[in-house]
């Protein structure tokens, strides 16, 4: 067993884990942060996307021991004091989900997209950058609309996403 210490959603946490433990297992099973999902478990579907030191990664393909000392943001870390993050609000407003299974990964990927590309995202860019996230209900149309709106809302001084530096 190895001790892993990291900052998750702004809080210092540590856990004693077998080296085999994946980051997603640490989040879900040790920390009970079950908003991060496991869909395919083969690095394709993106339901497990979290931010690692501010960058979107697939937590099902990352060892927990490898990210010792890092800062992780999960879907649970986006809302502040009961107010949805603008990207979450945009998904609600534009009905960017049906069953909701892929949604945490979609939203974390969307916020990462804004961090990388700014607040004005065209449809082509959004669709291309959603390469790593699969949705089996919506046909993506409303997800794309939600991300464009959420990106814009994030630029209008709506509450900033909790970042790695925090």
């Amino acid at each position: 067993m190895t001790t892993v210490s990291l900052t998750v959603n702004g809080k210092a946490v540590s856990a004693n884990v077998d080296p085999r433990t994946l980051l997603v297992q640490l989040l879900r099973e040790n920390l009970r942060l079950t908003g991060t999902h496991v869909g395919c478990d083969t690095s394709q579907c993106g339901a497990c996307v979290v931010h690692l030191d501010g960058k979107a990664v697939k937590s099902c393909t990352t060892l927990a021991v490898a990210v010792d000392g890092a800062s992780v943001t999960t879907i649970e870390g986006l809302a502040h004091d009961g107010t949805l993050h603008p990207m979450q609000e945009a998904f609600r407003e534009h009905h960017g989900l049906q069953c909701g299974f892929c949604t945490p990964g979609m939203i974390m990927a969307a916020v990462d997209m804004v961090n990388r590309r700014g607040h004005q995202l065209d449809e082509k860019t959004i669709r291309e950058d959603l390469d790593g996230n699969i949705c089996r209900c919506t046909g993506y149309h409303n997800i794309v609309k939600a991300i464009a709106a959420g990106a814009e809302a994030m630029g209008k001084g709506a509450a900033p996403v909790r970042q790695a530096a925090e």
Binding site: T62, G132, N133
Partner: peptide
């Protein structure tokens, strides 16, 4: 290569 998340790792 791959997708944005894969390219981060």
């Amino acid at each position: 290569i791959g997708d944005p998340h894969v390219r981060h790792r």
